[in-house]
C-alpha cells in the first residue's frame, strides 16, 4: 500500500518533470517530428555605375556621365530594413528586427542573410530604404542601429540613412560627403520599395539558399542634383538630401534570383 503511494508520487513527479521540460522548449520548435519548416534567403546588393551599368568599385576614379565629375568613393553605406516576402497564397512574412547596414567597403555586408523564412514559394518582396521613423525617435538601439556605426546625427537626432563620401577634383574642397536622412515631413527620405520577381519565384526550402540580386547605382545620387562643384556636402535633412536619396533609391532594381 505504502509502496503504491510512492509509485504514484514518482509517476506524478516524472509526469510533472516531463511537462516542465517540454514547456522549456523554444516556441519555434515544431512538436514531434524534426522536419525543418524554415529556410534561409540571401539578399545581395550589387553596385553598378551609370546608364550602362558598368561595374562599380570603391577607391578608384570613376566618371559621372551626367555631371562629368571625376569621383573616387571612400564611403558608401546605407540602411535596408523591414524586409518582407509575399507567399504565392498572398500572405506576407516579415523579418523581425529587420535592420541591415550595407557597407560597400565590407564585402560580407553586401549579402544580407535572412534566416527562419518559412518554406514555400514567394513571388514578391518589400523592403525599406532607410530606417522607419519610430526607430529615429526611440533612443539607444543596438546592432545595425547602434550609434557606433557612425550613421546617427549627434546634433539633429536621426539616422543618416545613406552616406556617400569621396574625393573629387571637381569639388571646391576636393571632397564630397552626402549624408542623406530625414524621417518626417516633406523631407522624409524613408522609402518603401516593392518588387515582384519578374516571373521568377523564390523557393524557400531547407536544402537550398536562394539569393535575390538587387542592383544599386551610386551614379544616381547626381541624377537630378547638380555635380559636386555646386553641391559637395549634404549634412542634414532637406531638399538636396531628399532629391539625392530619392534618385538613388528609385534606381535600385531587382535583377535575378539564384535558386
Amino acid at each position: 500500500m505504502k509502496k503504491n503511494i510512492f509509485s504514484k508520487i514518482m509517476l506524478l513527479s516524472i509526469a510533472t518533470t516531463a511537462i516542465l521540460f517540454t514547456s522549456c522548449k523554444k516556441d519555434d520548435d515544431t512538436g514531434g517530428d524534426n522536419t525543418p519548416t524554415k529556410g534561409t534567403v540571401k539578399l545581395e546588393f550589387e553596385h553598378k555605375w551609370g546608364m550602362n551599368l558598368v561595374p562599380f568599385s570603391m577607391g578608384v576614379d570613376i566618371k559621372q556621365p551626367k555631371t562629368g565629375d571625376t569621383l573616387k568613393f571612400t564611403t558608401l553605406k546605407y540602411y535596408v530594413s523591414n524586409i518582407k516576402f509575399k507567399k504565392s497564397d498572398g500572405t506576407w512574412w516579415s523579418q523581425d528586427e529587420s535592420y541591415h547596414l550595407v557597407d560597400a567597403s565590407i564585402p560580407s555586408s553586401l549579402i544580407i542573410s535572412i534566416a527562419d523564412v518559412p518554406i514555400g514559394t514567394y513571388t514578391e518582396m518589400q523592403y525599406t530604404m532607410g530606417v522607419d521613423s519610430i526607430r529615429n525617435v526611440s533612443g539607444a538601439q543596438t546592432g545595425a542601429l547602434s550609434t557606433a556605426n557612425g550613421m546617427f546625427w549627434n546634433w539633429n537626432s536621426g539616422y543618416i540613412m545613406t552616406k556617400a563620401e569621396g574625393m573629387s577634383p571637381n569639388s571646391p574642397s576636393g571632397d564630397y560627403a552626402l549624408h542623406l536622412g530625414g524621417f518626417q515631413g516633406e523631407f522624409n527620405v524613408v522609402t518603401v520599395k516593392s518588387t515582384d520577381f519578374g516571373g521568377e519565384v523564390l523557393n524557400v526550402s531547407p536544402s537550398a539558399t536562394p539569393q535575390i540580386h538587387l542592383v544599386a547605382n551610386p551614379a544616381k545620387f547626381w541624377h537630378t542634383n547638380p555635380g559636386v562643384k555646386t553641391i559637395s556636402k549634404i549634412h542634414m535633412p532637406g531638399a538636396n538630401a531628399k532629391q539625392a536619396a530619392k534618385d538613388f533609391y528609385d534606381g535600385i532594381f531587382f535583377d535575378h534570383i539564384h535558386p
Binding site: K2, K3, F6, S7, I9, M10, S13, I14, T16, T17, L20, F21, S23, C24
Partner: peptide, 19 residues
C-alpha cells in the same frame, strides 16, 4: 525508502529544470 528517494530526486529535478 528507495522509491521515496527517487521521487525526491525528481522533485528536485523539477525545480532545477524549470526553465
Amino acid at each position: 525508502n528507495k522509491t521515496l528517494k527517487i521521487s525526491l530526486i525528481f522533485f528536485v529535478l523539477i525545480f532545477i529544470s524549470s526553465c
